[in-house]
């Protein structure tokens, strides 16, 4: 067994573990930041928006499809 090879493998394994720990720490930071967001940061979506969306995306297209049927 090559002792240098084993040391290299150990180093790579430690590097991978360190990178993983860093990713987890970054994820935790992001989750905490996102949990604190509200309408001010994410934008509001009012009842009028819902009505507009459903009329534009569903009611009008369904009516047109019905009208266009042979």
């Amino acid at each position: 067994m090559d002792p240098n090879g084993r040391a290299g493998a150990n180093n790579r394994s430690e590097e991978r573990m360190a990178a993983q720990a860093q990713r987890v720490a970054e994820l935790e930071h992001r989750i905490r930041a996102l949990s604190e967001l509200g309408d001010a940061e994410l934008g509001e979506f009012t009842r009028l928006d819902w009505v507009l969306l459903l009329v534009l995306g569903a009611a009008v297209p369904l009516a047109v499809l019905y009208w266009g049927a042979p």
Binding site: L37, L42, F45, L53, L56, G57, A58, V60, P61, L62, V64, L65, W67, G68, P70
Partner: peptide, 28 residues
């Protein structure tokens, strides 16, 4: 004419239904 109707209106309905849950969950 039928193709135009089916593609534009159908596409809008499909996009709306696919977007409703995903857009809000992914944006929020």
């Amino acid at each position: 004419l039928e193709g135009l109707i089916c593609l534009v209106a159908g596409n809008m309905i499909g996009v709306l239904l696919a977007s409703l849950p995903l857009s809000f969950a992914c944006q929020e």
